[in-house]
């Protein structure tokens, strides 16, 4: 039972990070019908921005602000940096190709992904960056928390899971209950019709990139708070986020959340109960199964075409 609880905690932590990444994929796909393969690298850049800001604030061994402020500032800085990066990517890599055949922006996305990974490596080298959160208050974030039976839910995981869920709720609220969200949904439904109704499409698309990239930045920090980050993590994280988005139904916001959590649970349980070496196989098999039996994903809409 203890192992089950521990694995469930792992699953929630992993799943919430995957969900944040998947949301970025799904937002951009929903509005632009573009699979933004550079999204994983934006996530990686976010984790590096977080690391940089953390060092500026004295690092974990000698922080100049209280822990809560440190973590908040690091997360906000990564979100802001990634949002700006998202704007630049949209402006220079995707906007010029908006009316081009679908393959063009897809290849451009792969190009941006390689560009970001290699630029970061040239600028900062290949050495992994460890946030060293264990050093904050003598390991308090790891060693204190809520006890569930014999298993502890450490503070750091509570923070990760809570931040992710708060962001998902805020995003849901923004998309479903605000004017901007309505414009996003309208653009997603029919871009041309939305433009004719007076919606500034360019602005909506830029805002979508800002939102998606900011979530990737937050996910990057949530990930790197527990695990060392490095330039190469972007590809795998992007792939997992994409898989989560597909499982949940790409284009669907609740779907991306559900997909992320399903992926997190599948990964944690397969690692814990079967074997770590089978975990990726199981995770990607789930995606293939969805592609075959429910291509629209868990909560996506079936693509009905008028013939």
């Amino acid at each position: 039972m203890d192992q089950f609880i521990q694995l469930s905690i792992d699953a929630l932590t992993l799943g919430s990070v995957y969900a944040l990444i998947a949301l970025g994929y799904t937002l951009v796909y929903g509005v632009l019908k573009l699979l933004n393969f550079a999204h994983g690298d934006v996530f990686m850049v976010g984790s590096f921005i977080g690391f940089g800001v953390l060092q500026l604030l004295g690092g974990t061994s000698n922080p100049v602000v209280p822990i809560w402020a440190l973590l908040t500032l690091v997360t906000l800085a990564a979100m802001a940096g990634c949002a700006a990066l998202g704007v630049v990517i949209e402006r220079f890599a995707y906007r010029p190709l908006r009316d081009a055949p679908r393959i063009a922006p897809l290849i451009s996305a792969l190009g941006v992904s390689f560009f970001l990974a290699n630029s970061m490596q040239l600028l900062f080298g290949a050495t992994p960056r460890n946030y060293d959160t264990f050093e904050l208050s003598n390991g308090a974030l790891y060693l204190r928390g809520i006890d569930i039976g014999n298993v502890r839910l450490p503070l750091l995981r509570i923070i990760t899971i809570s931040v992710a869920f708060v962001m998902m709720v805020l995003l849901w609220f923004l998309v479903n209950r605000t004017r901007t969200g309505k414009a996003m949904r309208a653009t997603s439904f029919d871009r041309e019709a939305a433009a004719m109704m007076g919606i500034d499409i360019d602005r909506v698309i830029v805002f979508t990139f800002v939102l998606g990239s900011a979530l990737a930045g937050a996910a990057g920090v949530m990930f790197a708070l527990r695990v060392p980050t490095q330039v190469s993590i972007g590809f795998v994280a992007g792939l997992k986020g994409f898989t989560a988005a597909v499982i949940g139904g790409i284009g669907s916001i609740p779907g991306a959340m559900a997909g992320g959590l399903i992926l997190g649970f599948a990964e944690a349980y397969s690692q814990g109960y079967i074997s770590t070496k089978w975990s990726d196989l199981i995770v990607f098999s789930i995606m293939i199964a969805f592609m075959i039996f429910r291509p629209q994903g868990l909560l996506g809409r079936a693509d009905i075409r008028k013939v």
Binding site: L7, D10, L14, R226, Q271, G272, T276, S279
Partner: peptide, 17 residues
């Protein structure tokens, strides 16, 4: 004996074993 993939970054599930 436990086995992990060379690309594993989070060992939490493995630690449960």
């Amino acid at each position: 004996r436990l086995t992990a993939s060379n690309t594993t970054t989070d060992y939490s599930a493995l630690v449960t074993k």
